[in-house]
Amino acid sequence: MTAPPPDGSEPGPIKVLLADDQALVRSGFRMIIDGKPDLEVVGEAADGEEAAVLAAGLRPDVILMDVRMPHVDGIAAIERIVASGNPARIIVLTTYDVDDAVFAALRAGACAFMLKDVRPAELVEGIRVVAGGDALLAPTVTRRLLDRFVQVLPAPSEATPDEVAALTQREYEVLRLIALALNNAEIADRLGLTEATVKAHVSAVLRKLKLRDRVQAVVLAYDLGLVRPRQN
């Protein structure tokens, strides 16, 4: 969810920006999202250029970004948004669960992805989860994607050996379980901890290793050899 306002009042709804070149797709997503009291569509973009401009002006919490759009595509838009320092969490919309475009979007800075034919309840829950920064979407699909592309993924962090060594044993365990695509509740169950404690450990791992999100944590865990790609 969005962070509480500095005055201590209740946080407002999660602000969502829709970016898709098909008006029918955008209207369908808007109908689903605006039907929930804790979610609000704050803008719509028909291409990547418009998405980047609206992201800068509207400061959404979550962006649903189509990969393939005319003029400026979704990947280029993600690169611009991330490079600007915008903290919006970007979910890539895709027709196929694992392809080069999804990989490129994650490489550009997207934090999750979902299929365009996602069920309404899954769309809503996905937005909430990503806004809270608690877990990846479609963990088994994410694992398959990384298994396929891990050898050519870019370095996810500028963490030094000392910073990696500064992780506690528990933080190492949490990092490994993140790489296995477990969410906070599953990690808590595995380690016998509360979800709040797990969330604190995840935050510490991201901070210490200078990681933007859990996708980068997964990549780094592969790089460290905590998890190995599956053999075909």
Results as ranks from 00 to 15, higher is better:
Pro139Phe: 10
Ala77Glu: 02
Gln151His: 10
Asp100Asn: 06
Ala181Tyr: 05
Asp97Pro: 07
Ala138Asp: 01
Leu224Val: 11
Ala131Gly: 10
Val67Cys: 08
Arg144Ser: 07
Leu177Ser: 10
Val152Gly: 00
Glu10Pro: 02
Leu24Thr: 12
Phe149Asp: 11
Asp47Pro: 07
Pro139Leu: 11
Ser84Gly: 13
Asp66Thr: 13
Leu177Val: 10
Ala185Val: 15
Lys208Ile: 05
Gly133Cys: 10
Ala135Gly: 11
Asn183Pro: 04
Leu17Thr: 12
Ala108Met: 06
Ala179His: 08
Leu146Tyr: 12
Pro229Gln: 14
Gly43Ala: 12
Leu136Trp: 08
Pro120Cys: 07
Arg176Ile: 00
Thr142Val: 05
Gly192Glu: 11
Phe29Trp: 07
Val62Arg: 06
Leu193Glu: 09
Arg207Lys: 08
Ala55Trp: 10
Gly85Ile: 15
Ile187Tyr: 00
Ala166Arg: 09
Val62His: 04
Val164Arg: 13
Arg230Thr: 12
Gln22Gly: 09
Asp99Arg: 00
Gly12Thr: 04
Leu182Glu: 14
Ala19Lys: 13
Asp21Thr: 15
Gly85Glu: 09
Val174Thr: 03
Ala204Arg: 01
Ala104Ser: 06
Ala23Trp: 12
Val218Ser: 02
Arg119Lys: 10
Arg212Ala: 02
Val219Ser: 01
Arg214Gln: 04
Val205Phe: 05
Gly85Met: 12
Leu180Thr: 14
Ala76Val: 00
Arg119His: 08
Lys15His: 14
Arg107Lys: 10
Arg190Asn: 04
Pro156Arg: 03
Ala105Tyr: 00
Gln231Arg: 14
Ile33Asp: 05
Asn86His: 14
Ala108Asp: 04
Leu64His: 09
Met31Phe: 04
Ala217Phe: 02
Glu44Asp: 15
Asn86Arg: 12
Val198Pro: 05
Ala104Trp: 03
Gln216His: 08
Tyr222Cys: 04
Arg212Leu: 01
Ile127Trp: 03
Pro161Arg: 07
Glu158Cys: 01
Lys208Arg: 03
Ser27His: 04
Arg176Ala: 13
Asp20Gln: 15
Leu153His: 00
Ala51Asp: 09
Val102Ser: 02
Lys199Asp: 13
Gln151Glu: 15
Glu173Phe: 08
Ile187Ser: 05
Val42Gly: 05
Ala159Gly: 10
Val215Ile: 06
Gln169Asn: 07
Ala52Val: 07
Asn232Ser: 14
Ala101His: 08
Val92Ile: 15
Ala204His: 02
Ile81Trp: 02
His71Ile: 14
Cys111Gly: 12
Arg144Met: 05
Asn183Ile: 07
Ser9Pro: 07
Phe113Leu: 02
Lys199Tyr: 09
Ala165Glu: 15
Glu122Asn: 11
Asp147Lys: 04
Ser157Trp: 01
Leu145Met: 14
Ala155Ser: 03
Lys36Ala: 12
Ala200Met: 10
Ala55Ser: 15
Arg30Gln: 13
Thr168Val: 03
Val118Cys: 15
